Simulated scan of single mutants.
Amino acid sequence: MLSSKRMLIIALFIQGVLLTAPANALSDMQDTPITFDNLVGKGKWTVMEVWASDCRMCRASIHHTVDFEMSNPDVDVIGISLDGKEGKANAKKFIDEQGLTFNNLISDPSEIDKYLYSTAKESFIGTPTFMVYNPEGKLLAVQPGAITAEELSDFIKKQDTQNKPAS
């Protein structure tokens, strides 16, 4: 029979492994690991666009995200490239070609799929995919496919209106 101290250590280890599993899902362009939790819940809305440099729809529609960022400076906009570490040069080229000024990270489809399933019980469908988090860091929407700057703005305004306390 295991001692209670040993059982506690094992339980804490298992809990730590389970809670930190998504931590390696993202890294910045310098290969520094980043967690989703470090990106959201800072008192601001956060919009993430998952994209890939070889995605034709991403190339055709990412200007909407650029427009959204420019017209909504109070919202954190983050791009997540699915080119993986081996495709970082392609991701950087895409960022430069598209004139992306918002922060962009690197991941891969399997990591994004794990994250979406663990947080939203949804499977990753493809790029582009948008994730919208409220200022408290709660994932409110996962939207596969291209969306416009106006659609993003309208969604956030609607959420703000619905969640305002009555005067």
Rank of each mutant, 00 (worst) to 15 (best):
K88H: 02
L2N: 10
T161C: 05
N72W: 01
N90C: 00
S110G: 09
T148H: 05
F124I: 05
F130Q: 07
P144F: 05
E49R: 08
S153N: 13
E111I: 01
K93R: 10
Q143V: 07
N72K: 05
K42F: 01
K157I: 12
V142D: 00
S81I: 03
F124L: 04
L105P: 01
L8S: 02
V47D: 02
L116Y: 04
T127W: 01
F124M: 05
N24K: 14
Q162M: 14
V142N: 06
V50C: 12
K158H: 13
K164N: 13
K42G: 09
D108E: 15
M57I: 15
Q15E: 11
S81T: 02
L152C: 09
W45L: 09
K42E: 11
N103R: 12
N163Q: 15
G43P: 08
R56N: 11
A23R: 08
S81R: 00
E86D: 15
S61Q: 12
C58E: 09
P73W: 06
V77W: 00
A52D: 06
L18I: 14
N90D: 06
T119N: 12
E122R: 10
T65E: 13
T161V: 08
G79H: 02
E151F: 08
V50D: 08
D28G: 07
T161P: 00
K138R: 11
V50N: 02
M29R: 02
M70L: 13
M48F: 09
K114Q: 14
K42A: 06
I62M: 11
L39S: 05
T65I: 15
V142F: 06
W51A: 00
G43A: 03
S71K: 13
V132Q: 00
H64Y: 13
E111L: 12
T46C: 14
M29Y: 05
K5R: 10
R56Y: 06
W51H: 06
S81C: 07
A11T: 13
P73V: 10
V132T: 05
I34K: 14
D76C: 09
L82T: 07
T119P: 05
E69A: 12
I95E: 07
F13T: 14
T129A: 04
K114M: 15
Y115Q: 07
D37S: 13
W45I: 11
F68N: 01
H63Y: 10
E136T: 05
I95C: 03
S167T: 11
E150R: 11
S167L: 15
I156H: 02
D113Q: 03
